[in-house]
């Protein structure tokens, strides 16, 4: 248990770039220690991606649960977010102290513009997994791959969201239920 805890803290401290960047490292660690086989790990990726919550946390929960039950699930999920949690608090303290400094304010003007670009890339990625068909995980060609039913649903949902502006969860639950019947 201590070893697993240590491994998850290490993953949380040294992987940059969010959940997807953690997968290769997590796989090495899980297979090497015999927590999961390579096939089980592939299943785990599928489960993590189709269930709510950040992928890395889902994986930590799953591996923790399999080895040590509910207790393990809780401990490993916390372990994986813990290192960055302390760094976030330290960073916040520093920024809070200097938040009036013109250089900090100016840096944030640049940072916010940068993030607009990054959210753009994220939109493309979400689009690739939501309105494109996948053949065994591989993307088909640009035109062939479009899932027209999904594309139609996308246009309708965007229109409704734009017009009504209700709580996002209403749309998520509503369209989730509708999709059970239309696919």
């Amino acid at each position: 248990m201590i070893k697993m805890l240590f491994e998850f803290i290490k993953i949380g401290a040294f992987t940059y770039g969010g959940g997807l960047a953690m997968i290769p490292l997590l796989q090495d660690v899980a297979v090497e220690n015999g927590w999961l086989t390579a096939v089980q790990f592939a299943d785990l990726i599928a489960i993590s991606q189709s269930t709510p919550g950040p992928i890395a946390i889902n994986m930590a929960t799953y591996i923790g649960y399999r080895e040590f039950g509910v207790y393990g699930a809780v401990v490993m999920s916390i372990a994986v977010v813990l290192p960055a949690f302390f760094m976030a608090i330290a960073l916040s303290k520093v920024l809070y102290k200097y938040k009036k400094h013109p250089y900090i304010t100016a840096a944030f003007v640049g940072l916010k513009a940068t993030v607009i670009g990054l959210i753009g890339t994220s939109i493309i990625q979400v689009a690739l997994v939501s309105i494109y068909e996948h053949d065994q995980g591989k993307l088909l060609s640009f035109w062939q791959g479009i899932d027209y039913k999904a594309l139609a649903l996308f246009c309708i949902s965007l229109l409704i969201i734009r017009k009504t502006q209700k709580h996002p969860l209403i749309y998520i639950i509503g369209f989730g239920l509708v999709s059970i019947f239309i696919w």
Binding site: S50, I123, V126, A127, V129, S130, I131, A150, L153, F154, S157, L158, I161, Y171, I172, F175, G176, L177, V178, S179, I180, I182, W183
Partner: peptide, 12 residues
């Protein structure tokens, strides 16, 4: 199927 639809809405 539900998740398929949810991913589309998340995009929107």
């Amino acid at each position: 199927n539900a998740f398929k639809g949810i991913r589309v809405v998340v995009l929107a």
